[in-house]
Nucleic acid binder design. Structure first.
Lengths: 252, 252
DNA sequence: TCTGAATTGTGAGCACCGCTCTTGTCATCC
DNA sequence: GGATGACAAGAGCGGTGCTCACAATTCAGA
């Protein structure tokens, strides 16, 4: 790798981006199974073997697209949360997402923040379903997600758990966690997702996120076809129920 | 097509089944993208072109596998429900799933039936994740599910909504459906899924099913890796919460 | 500034893929 | 017992991912 700034490095970064863009374009047309390196190179006016200077294999390219998709989704969720936070209850700006303690009543409504995350996820997925499928779709049997994907994947998770931290004091009607194994798993996961969130709310957060992903999966997969299409109302109804079950709403 | 019963027809049915079995085997090894007609024919000791006498194309074979997967899952759910129904509260047999009216207190516990469906779905999916992915995984962009798939798909849905019918009289704490559009969608869907189930419980049923599918999707996709694996306890916790939110438990 | 090394592009080639078409063989039905 | 249709076989087309030897280019250190 040449030092960044040289003409060669710039050209490399540029071409790498072009390759990924063209790959993304083809992915939207035909699905991950049809992604063709030869077609990409053809479109970019280069010989197919040259592409291997940038990505060692087709799987490598796909992995890069997965990492990008995670990062892009995480970015969308984070910036949406920042906007929702700014428009919150008392108009307090929340430019630093990981702000320190206190000032609870001044922070944006946690229910609103969570609902924003949920609707941002759906919007993002509906605009580019192939990228959503890349992340949450059919896994390749032998495929183990490389380390590079876990970090942006956590960013996505966090966007749904940060609002839970802001609701410490609200009562939660969710069932207590009785299974000691699950309790241990939740406490371990909680150290990453939200140390101050009790296990019961953490569990509710995981299942709520699963429901959101399930709904989007079903919608994108066409399983609502002829029944709940468009699914806007169903989704809104579900999100409302979820924020309530998470104990984020102000209603007691 | 020869008349059924002739040696030729029998041989044809036999070979068709062998092809699908071998395809399923390869699918488990490598994923839908790697399914190779040539490899199947090679394994079956025939020339590749001969395979086209049985399936017009690769997509045709995949569609057949999807239909089979739906049917198999539906069958698993239905027979599990029959077993759960037999072992229910008062030991009343429920050989005819679509039994007529009354005898409500004698029927099996609706919560138990729904939980059975949920755990059957997960077990089925974990044993053969490639078939689950075939149904609920990444959709092919241009692909429109053919008519043949809709009927078995409905059977799967029904397995999760029949228990709701058995809970008519139980109170439901789920939020009322306020959106008129959603209400219309629910009433239309209800004519198929359960005419006597009120819209609010129907909506809860759809989102509950989405959560179950989302959880299994995440588990199969390895998204719980390092956090909630094994996910048995998390799943059990979620199912318990869902049966409660569906108003199926006896507790008020 | 010049030169050796690293990087990138080229084109041929291998093994595989889905799918089509022609040819010859066989079971089935009138 | 033929005519007919289903069937297997094989060659072949255009496509794929990927490798390799080679030429061109760019960079970095003496």
């Amino acid at each position: 790798m040449a030092a960044p700034g040289t003409a060669r490095a710039i050209a490399r970064a540029e071409l790498t981006e072009q390759i990924k863009n063209e790959a993304l374009r083809q992915l939207g047309d035909a699905g991950a199974g049809e992604l063709s390196l030869r077609a990409i190179s053809r479109e970019l006016g280069m010989v197919s073997s040259a592409l291997y200077r940038y990505f060692a294999s087709r799987d490598d390219l796909l992995t890069a697209l997965i990492v990008d998709a995670y990062a892009d989704l995480a970015h969308a969720l984070e910036s949406a949360d920042r906007t929702a936070g700014a428009g919150g209850a008392a108009g307090v700006r929340a430019d630093t997402p990981a702000a320190g303690g206190g000032a609870r009543p001044a922070a944006a409504d946690p229910a609103r923040r969570w609902a924003t995350a949920a609707s941002t996820l759906r919007s993002w997925a509906l605009v580019q379903p192939h990228r959503f499928s890349l992340i949450y779709g059919t896994p390749v049997p032998g495929y183990r997600a490389p380390q590079e994907t876990t970090v942006p994947a956590e960013r996505v998770m966090l966007a749904f758990f940060r609002p839970l931290e802001a609701a410490e004091d609200r009562p939660l009607e969710a069932a207590e966690v009785t299974d000691p194994g699950l309790d241990a798993q939740l406490r371990a996961a909680g150290s990453l997702l939200g140390p101050r969130v009790p296990p019961a709310r953490l569990a509710a957060g995981v299942t709520a996120l699963a429901q959101v992903i399930g709904l989007v999966t079903l919608e994108i997969g066409g399983h609502f076809h002829g029944g709940f299409e468009p699914a806007d109302a169903l989704y809104a109804h579900a999100v409302e129920a979820l924020t309530a079950s998470l104990g984020l709403t102000d209603r007691p």
